[in-house]
């Protein structure tokens, strides 16, 4: 092969390379292709108004008969040496916020290793609610902007209750609630004022609350249509009273940073999503001490 031929050969090799490379740009991750046959069948069923047979019917928790009530309680513990919360530098309004020691609150371990701010809530829909809860059904639930942080850091409320966002600081705050089922809110709360918010729809998981003026501020809000949710206190204790007993219930354990899957409690273990099913007996039901390993975070 003489040099001219070699040049032509080399050039065309480069061309081949380019052609191949053109087809191999950044990969597109688009998920699986829809199956047209399945989609068409589904569409026909939906258009006809008929119910597709697929999928299991959820177990009916609202079974007949007089309801007996049970209490569920336990303690969340951080297993091992808890991490030291990282301090936060108050870069905005330092003359006010700099006075308060601010730390990262994503893992809050109290005295004795109790893990605070873990929510345990009922997932089973349409359960009977104990009339005791009627007293608090219309209550105001306070979320305070105080000392350049949200107080409380994690809270649960019911759709019938009113969320009162308050600003106890001498400076202005805004509260941005990124909700899914409810309309998102971003309200400006001047110093000393408060804004009542109605959240009428149930959220499937706790949603984040933030302040854009002070980016370190954060809180989590769970909105449920029933009153069966409990946020663990500084010693890690939680308690839900007056739950319907003798019927299958499903609960979820949630913590803002950690994976609450595979937690062992007295009588069972949470699944990969931190959920567990249980049938309560009337009266006291103790889940015992639930240890959360450091590897969960």
């Amino acid at each position: 092969m003489n040099s001219r031929h070699f040049l032509a050969f080399a050039c065309s090799l480069v061309g081949l390379g380019l052609a191949l490379a053109a087809g191999c740009s950044r990969p597109v991750v688009a998920g699986p292709r829809p199956d047209p046959a399945v989609a068409l069948k589904l569409r026909e069923q939906l258009s006809a108004g008929g119910a597709a047979a697929e999928g299991a019917k959820p177990e009916d928790a609202a079974a007949e008969g007089p309801v007996e009530w049970g209490t569920l309680h336990g303690v969340f513990k951080f297993a091992g040496q808890p991490p030291t919360p990282a301090p936060i530098a108050a870069t905005k309004d330092p003359e006010v916020c700099g006075k308060h020691p601010l730390v990262n609150e994503s893992i809050t371990v109290g005295p004795g290793g109790g893990l605070a701010n873990v929510i345990l809530f009922l997932r089973t829909p349409k359960v009977p609610v104990n009339p005791e809860y009627d007293k608090t059904a219309k209550d105001e639930v306070l979320l305070d902007n105080k000392n350049c942080r949200f107080e409380p850091h994690v809270l649960a409320m019911r759709t019938t209750q009113t969320l009162l966002i308050k600003n106890s600081d001498p400076i202005g705050h805004n509260s941005k609630l990124d909700l899914t089922a409810n309309a998102s809110i971003n309200a400006l709360i001047p110093s000393g004022q408060s804004a009542p918010e109605q959240l009428t729809k149930e959220e499937s998981l706790p949603k984040q609350v933030g302040c854009n003026i002070h980016p370190w501020m954060g809180a989590w809000l769970l909105v449920r249509s029933d009153p069966y949710a409990s946020v663990s206190n500084p010693t890690g204790e939680f308690k839900i009273e007056n739950l319907p007993a003798n019927r299958p219930l499903e609960f979820q354990v949630w913590q803002e940073k950690g994976n609450m899957g595979g937690l062992a409690f007295q009588g069972g273990k949470t699944d990969t999503k931190g959920r567990f099913k249980i049938k309560l007996k009337p009266g006291d039901n103790d889940l015992g001490t639930i240890e959360v390993q450091a590897s969960a975070f």
């Binding site: 589904l42 108004g49 119910a51 697929e54 019917k57 997932r123 099913k277």
Partner: peptide, 25 residues
């Protein structure tokens, strides 16, 4: 789609999302 994905994740372990009119429409 975002709501559908949320519903899919809300299904309890071992169960399937009911693909009926009530859920989808």
């Amino acid at each position: 789609e975002i709501k559908l994905i949320d519903e899919i994740t809300q299904v309890s372990e071992g169960e399937k999302l009911p693909l009926n009119r009530e859920m989808l429409v």
